[in-house]
Design a protein around this nucleic acid. Structure first.
Lengths: 145, 145
DNA sequence: TAAATAAGTTAGTTTTAACTAACTTTTGCA
DNA sequence: TGCAAAAGTTAGTTAAAACTAACTTATTTA
């Protein structure tokens, strides 16, 4: 395995899911998501966003009119919502252990796009069960410190 | 009464209500309402829209960020919805008489901003009653031709 | 592990929206 | 009915968003 140069940020490339997640977030919070907004939310350049947006438009996940604005299509919104939902489930799960919010955010960002539906369902069920066993949870929290 | 020059369109000035009505319509249909969209929807100049939008922003009916977009505030959306609702009630009422859609549209546009709540409620109740009396309605339709 | 592919960057340009200023037209009311 | 206030217009300007091109950095996979 090649050793990475630690002076370079590993800056994992944004996926389609990252874009959709942020776009939905922007629309919910500000009411609109312009290329410039997406770029600053993802901390990447406008040029990069332009490319991806045009791709998402041709893929039918959103409708884009340059210089005007964009809207998620039904398909795009559905997908975006499921991504946001998954994000929430994972966050809720980690919250059970009393982990710091910042750490939770970091971890969820890192793993969310790699989790399969079965695993996610397992985690969801597990979260529900753990919530009913406060004593067990307390023991787990102690173990984590 | 001064005789108007018939070669000039009478072009009644748009009211705050006209603006809100169109903005809501644009947001519902296109997902966003830019100054340029509003201007062409109301068939007035951008300059004029800029002025009004800035005013509506200071009045708290919408939040505007130039070059970005605008969103209705809770108050603005509430007002816009009630305007749209009134428009619909009046349209429904005139539809009872089998009047042409174009004519209905023209008339509703002309009168909607001048109708008081009591009158509107009366018309709403009347519409409901007439719908239960098809025979009477048929008679009224004939009288209108 | 080295191509091939995908994503990102910077720099410079283009396009468009939106603004302002100066002036005209409407409208409503004293 | 005429004047003040409100709304609209045009023309020209400014500013921001978004685009393109050329190139670099990551990532994936044969």
């Amino acid at each position: 395995m090649p050793v990475k140069n630690p002076s370079l940020k590993s800056a994992a490339s944004s996926t389609v899911e990252d874009y959709l997640e942020r776009i939905l977030e922007l629309i919910n919070s500000k009411g609109y998501a312009r290329v410039v907004d997406i770029a600053s939310a993802l901390k990447i350049s406008q040029a990069s966003v332009t490319n991806m947006i045009q791709r998402l438009d041709t893929e039918g996940l959103l409708n884009y009119e340059k210089y005007r604005g964009l809207v998620l299509t039904t398909a795009g919104e559905k997908l975006a919502r499921s991504i946001a939902h998954r994000h929430q489930l994972l966050t809720d799960f980690l919250k059970l252990f009393g982990i710091d919010d910042d750490v939770i955010y970091h971890d969820v960002e890192g793993m969310e796009h790699h989790i399969s539906p079965p695993t996610l369902r397992a985690i969801e069920a597990l979260t529900a069960q753990l919530r009913r066993r406060p004593a067990l949870l307390a023991k787990l929290k102690l173990a984590g410190t």
